Amino acid sequence: MAHPEQTTAERRASWTELFFDLVAVAGIGQLTHLLHRGPSLGEFGLYALLYLAFWVVWACVTVYSNVAGEQARTTLVFGCMFGLCVMMAAVDGMPEDHANVFAAIYVVVRIASSSAWGRGQVVVDWPIAQIGSGTLPWLVSLWVPAPGKFVLWGVGLAIDLWVMFTVDAERLMLDAQRRVRSRLRRRRPGPPRPPRRPPPRLRMLHAEPGHLGERLGQYLIIVLGEGVISVIAAVSVEEWTVPVAVIGVCAFLCLLGMWG
């Protein structure tokens, strides 16, 4: 595993990580399909839900590659990238079609990215790597029709956000130690014998702030670039009136403000 003392100069975003960032941002660009018909309040809410879903998947894989460093499994990153592509393809048919496909792939990618950590490894800077309860509403939503399906998605994302902002490193380590002790107590009674697998030795893993900051910055820059492309595409098909020009200029200034 990568060590926290590595500096940004020693660790830069790899080509694989940049490729993954581009695919994630392309998924966010695909969400504009939801806004072509209005948007209504419901469509805007669905846009926010799907945006957060793409961001959580991106962040899970980003933190994994950040902490694992050179030991990160390329096959896992590319597998999650393929999952993102399937989620992107499912966006075009929503809310009527493909919602179950989107939810199922989301759950698979979340489980795959969380199971990548070895026994006893606790990523204290990303608690949802260990606490995956936010995926349960997504799983249940596979058997629930809309609009209840999307309500469950929102509940799952709300749980993840609550875990991210309220669970600290000390609590994570205490919970991990409690689970280890619980497994030891559940062993069959009888004469002592050596265990087939020794209990895991807990390791506290931290993200590298420099590298993670670089990834977040690159992600934001690509998102802003996608925003510029979307504004240009929208303005180019309209009649160039004063209101359209004002909206175009204001959208560009809004993107500049986000960059600032």
Rank of each mutant, 00 (worst) to 15 (best):
L52A: 11
V61W: 00
F19L: 15
E96V: 13
I111N: 07
V77C: 12
G83E: 08
V123Y: 06
D97K: 13
G45L: 10
R73Q: 12
G69H: 02
H98L: 10
V61S: 01
N66E: 03
S114P: 00
E17G: 08
G38L: 08
G132Y: 06
Q71E: 01
G93I: 10
P39N: 02
L142M: 10
H36L: 15
H36R: 13
Y51W: 10
W126K: 15
V23R: 01
G29A: 14
G38V: 06
R37V: 03
G120I: 07
H33G: 05
Y64L: 13
P95Q: 11
L76G: 03
L136V: 15
G118T: 06
V140H: 06
A24C: 12
S141R: 05
T32P: 01
T16F: 08
D21I: 06
G27I: 15
L31F: 05
A48E: 10
D97V: 06
M94W: 00
E43R: 13
L139M: 09
E17C: 04
Q121P: 04
W58P: 00
N66V: 06
S115V: 01
M87R: 08
W126S: 05
V23M: 11
L34S: 05
M87V: 07
A103W: 07
L139I: 01
V91L: 04
A48Q: 11
H33E: 13
G27N: 10
L136H: 10
G134K: 11
A26G: 15
I28R: 05
I28W: 03
F102I: 05
S133T: 12
W138H: 00
L34C: 10
R37D: 09
V122K: 00
F54R: 02
A48I: 15
H98W: 11
V123T: 02
L22C: 08
N66F: 14
A53I: 11
W55C: 00
A48C: 14
W126Y: 12
L84M: 14
A53W: 03
A24G: 07
T32C: 08
R37Y: 04
V57D: 06
L22Y: 10
M87D: 00
W15Q: 13
V61F: 09
F82L: 15
L41N: 03
T62Y: 07
A112I: 03
V56N: 08
V108Q: 04
Q30M: 00
V107A: 14
S113G: 06
W126D: 08
W143P: 00
D125W: 12
Y64E: 09
P145H: 02
C60R: 13
A53G: 11
S133F: 12
E43M: 10
G134A: 13
L139F: 12
L41K: 09
L41S: 13
V91K: 06
G120E: 00
G42M: 09
R119Q: 07
G45E: 08
L49N: 02
L50C: 12
P39F: 07
D92W: 11
V140T: 08
L52C: 04
V144E: 02
A68L: 06
S133Y: 14
Q121A: 11
W117P: 12
M87A: 01
